Simulated assay, not measured.
Amino acid sequence: MKNTIVSIHWLKENYLDKDLIILDASQQVNQTKVITELLDIQIKGARFFDIKNDFSEITNPLPNTLPSPEAFAKAARKLGINSTSKIVIYDKLGIYSSPRAWWLFQIMGHQNVWVLNGGLPAWTKENLPVEKIVKNDYEIGDFESNFNSEMVKSKEQILNNIDSKTALLIDARSSDRFYGETEEPRAGLRSGHIPGALNIPYTELLENGIFLSKEKLAAVLPDQEKPLLFSCGSGVTACINYLAYEIIGNTNSKAIYDGSWTEWGQKKNHKSN
């Protein structure tokens, strides 16, 4: 099974696997301003994967910044995650922040990780087991990071790509933000996009918080021979687009521009359209 997404039916059937760990990667605040009624519950037995704090470099002024491999491994071990763990990640919006957590495990070298397609809304719709959110301590795991530096790009590398056109940069933000027709939700940022970028709003890849079928995704996503780079507002929804290309079986080299528009949009000396 390709390490991309699983259905709620798959999770229901494999729920008692002793190596399975379910992670809730929901964020309390999201830039979509979507409000969920599922804030106080989780899939029964789930563990909270705190992207904003435990799994980000909190000393960096940019939000959601990639943590060091050592910090990631330490936080993963604290959640009881082992090198043999099979990990299923979900969030409470269906598909929003869970692909970010998926990508973090991928870049840290852990392959047995999947996103729950439809997330908590799809799980609760089928009346599957949930519980009130509880905070637990877990037996320390033995997770080790095997960092792949090729899966993340810096602003300097993105700037160089404008001229070299080596890779295709895909921006997951809404089209009105991409074309500068509305103000950015974060204060102090310019509107617009990185020159040469292609806009594929992540929302076009989903329907009711569930990924489109593989066939429909393939029809929406351009088939490029070039390496692929992904950006968004702060590196979260870019991972949705990244994962979508993985779902259709695209084997091109892929990387996230981690700073995304939050970094690029505040740099006056950077080009933008």
Rank of each mutant, 00 (worst) to 15 (best):
I210S: 09
I170T: 12
T166G: 12
F55H: 06
E215C: 09
D50E: 12
P61L: 14
V88K: 03
S85L: 05
S234F: 07
C232Q: 09
F49M: 10
W10Y: 14
W103M: 13
S83R: 05
S164Y: 00
K78T: 07
L128I: 03
S154R: 04
E215N: 14
W114M: 09
F49S: 06
L39E: 15
W123Q: 12
E156M: 11
L198D: 02
G141E: 11
M1A: 15
L159Q: 14
N160Q: 13
K165I: 01
I200G: 06
S97T: 12
I158V: 15
D54I: 00
G180K: 11
A244F: 07
S97Y: 04
S175G: 00
R100Y: 08
K216Y: 02
K254P: 02
R100K: 14
Y202F: 15
L221C: 11
F105V: 02
Q42C: 10
N250W: 00
S175V: 13
I248S: 06
I107S: 12
F147D: 11
G233R: 06
I43Q: 05
W264R: 08
L198A: 07
S26K: 01
N14L: 02
S26G: 06
L229K: 02
F147P: 02
V152Y: 01
L39W: 01
D24N: 10
L189V: 12
V34C: 01
T262Y: 13
I51N: 11
T251Q: 15
I107P: 13
F48G: 01
F72C: 03
A187N: 09
N64Y: 15
E184H: 10
F72P: 06
K92P: 00
V130I: 15
W261E: 10
I210F: 00
V152E: 13
P121R: 07
F147A: 07
R77V: 01
K78G: 02
G249D: 09
G249E: 11
A172N: 03
G265M: 09
L221W: 08
K267P: 00
F230L: 04
Q106S: 12
A75D: 05
Q106T: 14
K74N: 08
T166F: 04
G196W: 09
Q106F: 10
A219N: 15
N82G: 02
Y242P: 05
N64C: 02
D258P: 01
M151E: 14
K44D: 13
K165Q: 15
I240Q: 10
T65R: 13
Y90P: 07
S174P: 02
S231L: 01
A71L: 08
I210M: 09
L23Y: 04
F48C: 01
A75Y: 02
I256V: 15
F105W: 11
